[in-house]
Design a protein around this nucleic acid. Structure first.
Lengths: 114, 114
DNA sequence: ATCTATACATATTCTCTCTATGTATTGACA
DNA sequence: TGTCAATACATAGAGAGAATATGTATAGAT
């Protein structure tokens, strides 16, 4: 039912969402909404995680076995799906952090040749 | 005519290709193949620009008025399409460099909270 | 003569992210 | 009491960008 739109705004550097989610979950289990809040807060609102990006991403991560999910009740009495890292998720996080830093170095080496 | 494949490997941080191309062209006009070589060389082969990504990207940049193109003959006697930045392209480059750095800062603020 | 590197280009597929929309519940406040 | 904002989940659809695979062509080296 979605109607046509003018353009398409990117709030994230594509390819970094999984990394941001995995890192957030490394601090402890959290529900989707909380993950988005956390990323927005830590980045001083520079990174906005849209719900339409977030929930599909969480499902992909679950399908890949990088996170586990369970329904729980929040301290504010709401039902929410809490996610936590699996062992494979922790490995993946370490790998993605490293890959991200390497790519940044590589891009910068083009932007500012030695 | 392309047949199905197993997976999909990302050689670049998606969203940075335009930036890399514009930066390369800021050093002087260059043809597509040369742009890819230049990016690969400066990044010590960390960034591989595939031809199937490169040529469509150049066409998009041209369509947006960020680059101009003209057929010329290379020093090695081959015909090649040389690209150069337009004024708008130079502005866009400055803007994208700045945006890239800001996103890196933002992502790092999530990866390594102060 | 054949092979490698150079040089361009496109069709197709894939993946990710956004837009838009929907449901439901809690707590505040008028 | 009613309504509104914030919280919390989810999906369909569209759009964009990047890779895979393939094709053409030519210069120079072996």
């Amino acid at each position: 039912m979605a109607t046509p739109r003018e353009s398409f705004k990117v709030e994230l550097l594509p390819g970094t969402l999984d990394l941001l989610i995995l890192k957030t979950l490394s601090l402890g289990s959290m529900h989707g909404y909380g993950i988005a809040q956390h990323i927005g807060r830590l980045s001083a609102a520079a990174l906005q995680v849209e719900e339409g990006s977030l929930y599909p991403a969480l499902q992909r991560l679950k399908l890949k076995g990088l996170v586990r999910a369970a329904w729980r009740i929040t301290p504010t009495k709401r039902r929410a799906r809490y996610y936590e890292l699996t062992r494979a998720g922790k490995r993946q996080l370490a790998q993605e952090v490293s890959a991200f830093e390497q790519v940044v170095v590589a891009v910068r080496s083009v932007l500012r040749p030695a």
